[in-house]
């Protein structure tokens, strides 16, 4: 299961990503486990996603590349902190697992899920969407290359059908 997560892990290693900031998330479970288990990565457990935006700004000032993992509900937590990234033209790569779009059990996930792309675009991100597991590696690789070569900001949205369905026991 989640072989796409292993593909993404390999791409991140290849891209020189060394700080992996995350708020725990079911969709990213496998990738987070891989990053925590690998000595080349520093996996940083956050209390809120905006910490990750700030963390990776500091990482870049120190010459290290990072990635921020979140689910779509985390986007809203970051909006003001994105001003740091944009004002300083810092690179920022985000991998976002989507909620609220595919057999979603929890209607409270809909507002952020439905507006994820719009909010990210407004905040100055390029947004790429992955709907098929086989496309994950190539999309993330392209995004990482662009982000770190050109000091830009890209979010890769991983469609909810890539991740396990949450049913709350129903």
């Amino acid at each position: 299961m989640s072989e796409w997560a292993d593909d993404i892990f390999n791409v991140l290693i290849e891209a020189g990503v060394r700080q992996v900031a995350y708020v725990p998330d079911m969709g990213h479970k496998r990738l987070i486990e891989r990053c925590n288990a690998d000595e080349r990565m520093t996996a940083v457990l956050l209390t809120t996603e905006e910490e990750g935006v700030a963390l990776l700004a500091g990482a870049w000032l120190g010459g290290e590349r990072g990635v921020l993992l979140m689910q779509s509900s985390g986007i809203g937590n970051c909006i003001n902190m994105f001003s740091l990234t944009r004002s300083c033209e810092l690179p920022l790569l985000m991998l976002v697992t989507m909620r609220g779009q595919w057999r979603e059990f929890n209607p409270w996930q809909k507002p952020m899920g439905r507006n994820a792309k719009k909010l990210l675009t407004t905040a100055g991100f390029d947004v790429e969407v992955v709907s098929k597991p086989g496309a994950a590696a190539e999309t993330v690789a392209e995004a990482a290359e662009g982000v770190f070569k050109n000091n830009c900001r890209t979010a890769v949205l991983l469609h909810q059908k890539l991740t396990p369905k949450k049913t709350f026991g129903k």
Binding site: E50, A54, A57, G58, L61, G66, L84
Partner: peptide, 21 residues
């Protein structure tokens, strides 16, 4: 690295920098 915004982020920036260097 003096901040003109990013309120609440100074310590996390310091963390990313400290881990990198």
């Amino acid at each position: 690295f003096p901040l003109w915004g990013a309120m609440g982020g100074a310590s996390a920036i310091g963390l990313g920098l400290a881990l990198a260097r």
